[in-house]
Design a protein around this nucleic acid. Structure first.
Lengths: 141, 141
DNA sequence: CCAGTTAATGAATATGATTCCCACTATCGT
DNA sequence: ACGATAGTGGGAATCATATTCATTAACTGG
């Protein structure tokens, strides 16, 4: 036997372990900032993996639905993806220039949101909070 | 003379007072929530104004650049527009169901953002904050 | 180890919002 | 009223993302 099966993702997923899924995970795991689907696709090509753009989109969609990658929307409307460390709810501080990002937690924001919502009589409140700026490297020429 | 000119927007804008601009302003002024360009275009048609979609987009773009309307991005990526009361910086609490919105200020959030950014060494930090929930009417069946 | 089952792939095509093009029209200064 | 020119609008262009469907290949039972 030699534990033949499950060469891929390892988990008890209903997903087949494919070369493409592994390559995508590898890229997400090795690059630090937020990337667009197209950038990820390009990086895959650069690494010699010839993977269809549709497949990249498909995987990213599933991964983000499962909460395994976080997404933000750029000013242009393009979606950027990033594999995140913490499972817990958090926000991002993102460099406008290089895309580097820091995960930040926002207890203060959660509380503020809850208070404001309650005052207005709103329920089931969700929120989006993202911070954009210049990281130390890009902001200090 | 009889102060003939300036039939349109009134302000010292460099924009010509056109029928289309007035109609658009009228729609924005009379509808309460956030609307997509297409919804606004449809409403204009409903009111008997035959205005090109391109013109609607053009005006909305200028208005939002001038800060005369606020914009948010729906989950689908579509941009929603709304004429806002206050010139001052503010955020929105928006009903997921009916689109109604309340303007909220977020001193607490601004301060939190500034602090978090400073700690990470980021500069020139900007932020996006939007709250989505169910308004009193839509949340209480 | 092999063949069959079926999910996964990907090239091409579709979609849908937004923008661009450009000939035509209407506003405003004179 | 006239002319310069900003504004208009129909349609084509763009661009990210979704979908289709025939083909490929990952797992599974034998």
């Amino acid at each position: 036997m030699s534990t033949p099966a499950r060469p891929a993702s390892g988990r008890g997923t209903r997903v087949r372990g494919t070369r493409q899924a592994e390559a995508l995970a590898s890229v997400l795991g090795s690059l630090p900032g937020f990337l667009s689907a197209q950038q990820i696709h390009a990086e895959l090509g650069r690494r010699g993996e010839r993977i269809g753009l549709a497949t990249v989109y498909r995987h990213l969609q599933v991964l983000s639905e499962d909460g395994r990658v976080d997404t933000i929307r750029e000013a242009s409307g393009e979606i950027l993806y990033r594999q995140c460390r913490s499972e817990a709810h958090h926000h991002h501080l993102i460099c406008r220039v290089c895309g580097a990002s820091v995960e930040v937690e926002g207890r203060a924001v959660e509380q503020w949101a809850a208070k404001v919502a309650a005052e207005a009589g709103f329920t089931a409140v969700d929120h989006t909070v993202e911070l954009f700026g210049l990281c130390p490297r890009c902001g200090t020429p």
